[in-house]
Amino acid sequence: AVSDRLIGRKGVVMEAISPQNSALVKVDGETWRATSGTVLDVGEEVSVKAIEGVKLVVEKLE
């Protein structure tokens, strides 16, 4: 799938994300809905860990 190429890519949080709420991230110039197990604020850099349906699963870039 096209989205599989995004695993391992870096992105930027466009809307705050919490474990209860998905929000938008920008990866390679494209906007995607994403979820995370932690709270992520706007502007934080993230890494794509997986794809669940049409959502990216991201975590904060260390």
Score class of each variant (00 low, 15 high):
W32M: 03
G37Y: 14
K55P: 01
E52Y: 10
S36E: 05
V48G: 01
V27R: 01
K60R: 12
V46T: 01
T35A: 06
A16V: 14
K26P: 02
N21C: 13
L24H: 05
G29M: 04
D28Q: 05
G53F: 05
V42T: 05
V25C: 05
I7L: 09
I17Q: 14
I51C: 05
S3I: 11
T31G: 03
V57G: 01
L56D: 00
E44L: 07
K55L: 15
G37W: 13
S18V: 07
K60C: 03
K26F: 13
G11N: 00
G53L: 03
M14C: 09
K26V: 11
G11F: 03
R5V: 07
L56Y: 03
W32R: 00
S22G: 11
L24G: 03
E15N: 06
L24Q: 05
K10A: 06
S3T: 11
V46Q: 02
K49T: 12
K55E: 12
I17D: 13
V2I: 13
M14P: 01
G11D: 02
E59G: 06
V27D: 00
V25H: 01
S18Y: 10
V39N: 11
R9N: 05
D41T: 14
A50M: 06
S47W: 15
S22V: 12
R33N: 10
S18L: 08
R5T: 08
A16W: 15
T38A: 10
V54D: 15
V57N: 03
V48H: 00
I51N: 02
E45I: 14
A23F: 15
E62A: 12
T38F: 09
A16D: 04
Q20C: 14
D4G: 10
R5L: 08
W32V: 00
K55M: 15
V48Y: 02
D28H: 04
D41V: 15
E45K: 09
G29F: 03
V13D: 01
S18C: 10
V13G: 01
V13E: 00
R9T: 05
D41Y: 15
V13R: 00
T38H: 11
T38E: 13
I51D: 02
M14R: 01
V54W: 14
K49G: 03
D28N: 07
E59P: 02
T38K: 07
I17P: 13
R9M: 14
E15G: 08
V27G: 01
G53A: 04
V48R: 01
S22L: 13
K60N: 04
K49E: 04
I7E: 00
D28T: 02
K49C: 11
E52H: 10
A16M: 12
I7S: 03
L40M: 06
Q20R: 10
K49W: 06
Q20M: 11
N21R: 12
K60L: 07
V2R: 09
V39D: 11
E52W: 12
D28S: 05
A23G: 15
G29K: 05
K10F: 10
K10R: 12
I17H: 13
L6A: 01
S3W: 11
E30H: 09
I51W: 07
E15M: 11
Q20N: 13
A16E: 05
S47L: 15
I17C: 15
S22Q: 09
G8L: 04
E62K: 11
K60A: 07
W32L: 03
G43D: 04
K60S: 07
V58Q: 00
E52G: 04
A23W: 15
E15P: 04
K10D: 04
V57I: 11
E45W: 15
S36V: 04
G8H: 04
D28F: 04
P19M: 10
S47V: 15
V57P: 00
E30G: 06
I17W: 15
G53I: 03
G11I: 01
K60W: 03
N21S: 11
